[in-house]
Amino acid sequence: MIATRRAADTAIILIIMLLAWQALHQLVGATALPGPVPTLAYLARFVPSERFAENAWATLVCFFYALLLSYGIGLAIGVWMGIHRLSGAVGEPILISLYTLPKVTLYPVVLLIFGLSLSGRVTFGAMHGVLPVALLTMSAIRNIPPVYLKSARTLHLSGWQTILTMLFPAALPEIVGGLRIGFTLTLLGVLLAEMFAAKQGLGSLIINAMQLMQAEEMLTVAVVLFAFAALANALLLWIEHRLHRRV
């Protein structure tokens, strides 16, 4: 019942968005903004093509490495700062101000260090993702009821045992929330890096299409990325809700 209503709501939003797109298209003209129908027709032709596959693969590889780094480093920092109170108290405001910083500003530094390479884009993507993962993991561990820690001590669990059998399962739902935001921001970082300076990848494809005034291709790539991000987010959100209900 609830599921069907949710599906209906999502469908309504999609329809409204398509109508708004069509209306905007009527307003500004076909050269600036092609309507949904021609764009989707172009999408059907463009997505199976070699050029799309190459660029999508480049973005995917870059995103995968960046995500690995974001999650690895973010979880490590988060767990450490969650367990060790003093480092948490010292580090949290620093992480928060880094989080709110527009990190694009630092992209030229990354470029100067790594050059126009995959490692540069991966680093930039990871820079976006690490902070939310670390901050939310930290707060997840801090929010664990103290009685759990006491029972771990009564059971004489070792440090690693405490982390694996107690801390991690108890903090998991919130940690997954952090991983979801980390996923989103890492993707944003990778795409920004590609839009600013890259020879391949979906971000650079959009910029190229804009410069060549190929509005259809530009919108097609945007629609594909939109769908990918929305679906991935829905999946992670679903896992998060399941974990919250588990307890």
Partner: peptide, 15 residues
């Protein structure tokens, strides 16, 4: 906020 909305910036520029 899950969608990287910057992908629509070029669309805005064209418009």
């Amino acid at each position: 906020y899950a969608v990287p909305i910057f992908i629509f910036y070029p669309v805005m520029i064209v418009i």
